[in-house]
Nucleic acid binder design. Structure first.
Lengths: 360, 360
DNA sequence: CATAATTTTGGTACCGATACCAAAATGACA
DNA sequence: TGTCATTTTGGTATCGGTACCAAAATTATG
């Protein structure tokens, strides 16, 4: 039984096989320039000793590491973890490993306040010589990104392919995949109107974040277009998690005049928090207030009531992101354009299943 | 303005500074054997050109990559993603990067059935020459692990430190951190008994998985010790996610004789699914059935009703795991022993807040 | 000021692969 | 059997750092 306590090198295999390192290299790289006899013998010895070449040494000459960097703001957020799953699945199929970097930026923070500066990760990842970088959320999602951040992005983008699932930033050496952030909002509003609701609020999300801004704009615009009287006191922002939804909704419920008959939440976590706040006030969903959400989480199907929400098609977005990155790495400049239409999922939280007309 | 299109090497910096590569190496490694003058000049040039040494080349000589492998069965599961957050936080503080490998093993699968064999990852990670490996969930959580898996673990453990957050497997070159899997179950049962419940069911989890087996044993044992009549028809296993909780609970509700007055669920996701199943049958929680859970998720505080559950102290477990691994890497053989007592969180789903005595 | 002690610097082998060119072995054919 | 083409193999520079030893420069000492 061979000693596998330490990794063997190509030189030791050469020694054991009685051939040169060049020949071993040829065998492990499936070069045609080896005789069948030699190849068989060497393969045998390789298997017996469980040898596999050091990817480190390989990377030294080949200049690629078969490693990708994925920078994400909060992996505990179902939106990101679902994206990640799809990304990793595809990457592993193609032989890539993923260095995951959680920045905690704008995340739930879980009791800890200090986010890790994304620049720190940029450097870390660059030093590891990854073949490409994928950025999901974080500073890039702000309406206005800082010069320092942009400069860091630029520097990174000059060295390796950087794909960003987010809205384009001018003069940035990165590939942007623009999502359809506000798609589905009009459908959501029409759904609520059809049920009789007219006093529609907006709950959750954070000021200055792209997703929030885009949806908020779509929301106000749609209402305006329909000639619905609209009051900014029905908007209550905070953040993207259940506690935020609770807090934001509780604020709306403080005064009768700001209490809506329906709300649109940023995502299912926010919606769940909002529903709790409504229940704690002794009101009921959907009887007193209809609740809709913009971003479907797996849990939304099991809340009470089940959430009417938008499916943002995360798997599709994840797959497009990783495909774009790998194409960029392989210089297949064949641009990928993404087009996804968030799909309305009608369940119970707006009251459609009751088949009645609600009060306005 | 320096050209930063390509990463500079230590040789080019040497050239630019008019000194030898040895000196540059000394500067970037903070060696005391450089004159202050030289050090200042070189540092200047390094900063101006934004140079940072290739961690690849460094790893070639130093034999460590400052990279860790983390193998997890399903990162979308809040249990694991919270562990991961704590692990990464600690690792990054110490200058380590993390290669994350999601095996999909026994996970929610998200519509895809084929898990990625963990052995594949073992090889991938070993080739990348990570300094250590952390395993969270997956095959290791089975009551009986396969010989092939064990052999793969062994081979890996011989080469690099492997820490497993899970129950010990004999003759395995790995460091095991045994969790207190069944802690808190008696407390949960006492809580239910105090509220008047006696027909207590067990919902969710999967046959042959350590967590399930341990908790099931604690459950039956506690009931037996208390002299409570116990019926195995009150046990309905399935898996660890909301749809599984729904399915398992629905099964119990099919017949009046198997319908419990209280249930203990494997985690908050399962509990949420179970509550939906109960509601869909026209019954109410906690009035008709009390629901308790063994594993706290952030969402459990925002369900209707709020979940009475067990806090497994994931942050603590995550921190202990990564600390153990890094200690092992540094040969600080100083063993870390973990001791966590799952803590009972009393909220609404068992009905304690109502202050009444329920039917048995 | 010569010599020794100490500080500072330079040269080069090495880590484990690959790539490229040269050399050896084999086979084809006159 | 000799010559040439083709297949197969070997030798070694290289990637970008570190480590170790030798050499040069500086300072201390008699």
């Amino acid at each position: 039984m061979p000693d596998d306590r330490k990794k063997l090198t190509i030189y030791q295999i050469a020694e054991l096989s009685g051939v040169s390192v060049s020949t071993i290299s040829r065998v492990i790289n499936n070069s045609p320039y080896v005789s069948a006899r030699t190849k068989a013998r060497v393969t045998d010895i390789i298997n017996k000793h469980n040898f596999s070449p050091s990817s480190l040494a390989r990377a030294m000459t080949s200049n690629h590491t078969k490693t990708l960097g994925v920078i994400v703001s909060d992996i505990t957020n179902p939106y990101f973890s679902e994206l990640y799953l799809e990304i990793q699945r595809y990457a592993v199929d193609l032989g890539y490993s993923i260095i995951l970097c959680n920045t905690f930026y704008g995340g739930s923070n879980h009791g800890v306040s200090d986010a890790i500066p994304e620049n720190t990760y940029f450097q870390m990842i660059l030093d590891k010589q990854v073949d490409g970088v994928l950025i999901l959320g974080g500073e890039i999602d702000r309406d206005h990104i800082s010069d320092a951040y942009k400069e860091a992005l630029n520097r990174m983008g000059k060295q390796i392919p950087v794909v960003i699932l987010g809205e384009s930033v001018p003069d940035c050496n990165c590939i942007f995949l623009n999502r359809n952030l506000s798609g589905g909002i009009p459908a959501l509003i029409h759904h609520l109107l059809a049920l009789g609701r007219r006093k529609i609020g907006f709950v959750g999300g954070e000021e200055g974040i792209r997703t929030t801004t885009a949806r908020l704009t779509a929301y106000t615009q749609t209402l305006k277009n329909l000639g619905i009287s609209f009051d900014s006191s029905l908007i209550s922002l905070s953040n993207y998690y259940a506690p935020d939804g609770y807090r934001a909704m509780a604020k709306l419920l403080e005064q009768p005049e700001t209490t809506p008959t329906a709300i649109i939440c940023m995502n299912d976590a926010v919606a769940q928090g909002a529903i709790r706040a409504i229940n704690d006030k002794g009101l009921s969903v959907p009887k007193d207030i209809s609740v809709a959400s913009c971003d479907q989480f797996p849990s939304g199907e099991y809340t009470s009531p089940r959430l009417t929400t938008l499916d943002q098609q995360n798997s599709y977005l994840g797959r497009m992101s990783i495909m774009t990155l790998i194409n960029a790495i392989n210089n297949d400049s064949e641009g990928i354009s993404i087009s996804h239409q968030p799909r309305l999922i009608i369940r119970e939280s707006c009251g459609a299943h009751l088949g009645i007309q609600f009060q306005q």
